[in-house]
């Protein structure tokens, strides 16, 4: 097996929450409590758990969007926290993110061409004509048209906006894409389109995904490996087949048992 693309070791992230009378006290919440995960090249690691389990915090900490309290993230063999600002920006080109809410994550005042092309501009990749070319090719890859470049986000449906978000992430040719609940705001029919698109693009561009989701049916379909989180800890991790077949932890069993469609309640 090849070397993992990204390795997170013993991540700890503590949030302080004001508590007590008038908020003078403070309580520490361990959002990440000694979390270690790794993603292999070209594969998908799904992080599952209920709200508050720390899965989104993990995503943000992996991308260095939030400082860690301790622990280390190595991407392509280098410690991300040790990189200079400039080096980190360069590394970020290869570490992209797709967000949950296709309505909130696109700037309503920018045209689609600008949204998708902005990363290329920031990373100074190619001249104007080459950038345009790349944006058009990427839009085609996600099922949109070149003419969509001149439109604004509000002219698109939820599923199409999610395609724009995917194009924006992938135009930089990243190696790892963190997808934070990319389909949970979409209807099932649109959800299926986006899941199939993500799989197609993974094959074509040799992408690795860190796929965050609370939907265990979606995860079963997307993941190669899975990490189950609860209260900031990874309670179980391994190959998806194995975990769905023989979950070792009570909590994982409980989660899998709660997937609707397995227990007839009506009589």
């Amino acid at each position: 097996m090849s070397e993992p693309l990204i390795v997170a070791s013993n991540l700890v992230k503590i949030y302080k929450q004001r508590s007590g009378r008038f908020g003078f006290g403070s309580t520490a919440i361990r959002a990440l409590d000694d979390v270690s995960v790794a993603v292999k090249p070209g594969s998908t690691l799904a992080v599952v758990g209920e709200s508050g389990s720390g899965k989104s915090t993990l995503a943000r900490c992996l991308l260095q969007l939030q400082p860690l309290d301790s622990g280390e993230v190595r991407f392509e063999g280098r410690d991300l926290a040790a990189l200079s600002g400039q080096e980190l920006r360069a590394a970020r080109r290869r570490l992209q993110m797709v967000f949950q809410d296709p309505f909130a994550s696109l700037n309503p005042r920018m045209k689609v061409g600008e949204i998708v092309g902005e990363g290329l501009l920031i990373h100074k990749l190619g001249n104007a004509a080459e950038r345009r070319e790349k944006v058009i090719r990427m839009l085609h890859n996600v099922g949109l048209e070149a003419s969509d470049m001149e439109k604004y986000p509000h002219e698109f449906s939820g599923g199409q906006r999610q395609r724009i978000g995917i194009a924006r992430a992938l135009v930089l040719e990243p190696r790892l894409v963190v997808c934070d609940e990319p389909v949970s705001a979409l209807d099932v029919s649109i959800q299926a389109q986006i899941l199939l698109l993500l799989k197609k693009l993974q094959r074509e561009m040799a992408l690795s995904y860190l796929f965050i989701s609370h939907d265990l049916r979606v995860v079963r379909h997307m993941a190669d490996e899975i990490a189950v989180m609860r209260h900031g800890r990874v309670v179980e991790q391994g190959g998806v087949e194995q975990i769905y077949r023989e979950p070792q932890q009570e909590y994982t069993r409980n989660l899998l048992n709660s997937i609707p469609g397995q227990h007839r309640l009506a009589h």
Binding site: S189, A192, L195, R217, V218, V240, E241, Y244, L256, Q262
Partner: peptide
């Protein structure tokens, strides 16, 4: 039928088909 084909199953046996 098309809507049912969009729903992933817990066993992972199903091929998703968008509408």
């Amino acid at each position: 039928q098309a809507l049912l084909d969009c729903v992933p199953d817990a066993e992972g046996n199903k091929t998703l088909k968008p509408i």
